[in-house]
Amino acid sequence: MHPLRLERDGAVATVVLDRPAQRNALDLALKVALRETLGEVAADEGVRAVVLTGGPEAFCVGQDLAEHAAALAEGPAFDTVTEHYNPVVTALATMPKPVVAAVAGPCVGAGLGLALACDLRLWSTTARLGTAFSGIGLTCDSGLSTTLVRAVGEQRARELVLLAQPFGPDEAVAWGLGGRVVEPDALLEEATALARRLAAGPTAAYAESKRLLADAAAGRPLAETLAAEAAAQVRLGATTDHAGAVASFLAKRRPTFEGR
């Protein structure tokens, strides 16, 4: 059985982690499939928005520890961070189209890292979140030492990482992880509706905005930010989307965006 499904609905691609019996634990097959699939949807000009989900029971419990234990018996077992986790998180964070995480059930360790690498999040009331790393004598991977601090602040991030303190979806929203909480049976439907809305929008502008926001969050100086914004506006000013939207505004009609 393939550990991942890719579903298409018009311009929306839904990437489904599909190891439900293992709560979508990340074994080698799933990590490779996820890395390759995200590369495919990033390059597919027909895809204008992406949903990442693990189905109704679990988003992702992080690394498959049974496989990890077997690898440890053979020697050091951490090449997967650079070979799999880093490329996957980079693909999500830099993809030139919006990515929505639809999170139900456990979302811990690298699973939480995947969710926070997405642009927007919807949380099921069943979501159970945590960092988990210190519980097995490890530290952060999948970008959490950056994304968690940006979302909740350094002090709360220290508590969540050092104490491996679990938390729920309401806390996630209140603390700054973004998104909103929905009922379980509405999660995928609402995530797909959000992705369809984004897919119908100015996806070229979204890609520029993602880059600007990420660089600003990384501490880029104001002068560099101003220069980057100016360059991005010049690029977008030459797009069909911009010209069409201005004409639509003046004509008092709804614009149609093509992502170019």
Rank of each mutant, 00 (worst) to 15 (best):
Q22Y: 04
S145R: 12
D79G: 14
A29K: 12
A243Y: 11
A205R: 11
E183C: 00
L4D: 15
P96D: 02
L198E: 06
E45S: 12
T82A: 10
R35Y: 00
S134I: 01
R196F: 05
K97P: 03
H2T: 09
A172L: 05
Q22M: 07
E229V: 11
L163R: 14
T90H: 14
W175G: 07
P255H: 01
W123K: 12
A21S: 11
E45R: 13
N24C: 02
K252M: 07
A93L: 01
V173K: 11
V15L: 10
E208G: 05
E7A: 10
L116C: 10
A29L: 13
A199Y: 10
L138R: 00
I136H: 06
F167M: 14
L198F: 15
V12F: 04
D185V: 06
D215E: 15
A238K: 13
A199P: 12
R235L: 14
P98L: 14
C107P: 00
Q63Y: 05
T256S: 10
V32D: 07
A33D: 05
F257M: 13
V47G: 02
L160P: 04
K210E: 03
A231F: 02
E171Q: 15
G201T: 11
L112A: 06
S145E: 14
T37I: 13
P169T: 10
S124I: 03
V89F: 10
V152P: 05
V61S: 00
E258C: 13
S248Q: 05
M1V: 02
A151R: 04
E229G: 00
L177Q: 09
S248T: 05
G237Y: 09
L148K: 00
T90C: 08
P56F: 01
A205G: 14
F59G: 01
L226T: 09
A117R: 06
A238L: 15
T256M: 06
G55V: 05
L177D: 03
V81H: 10
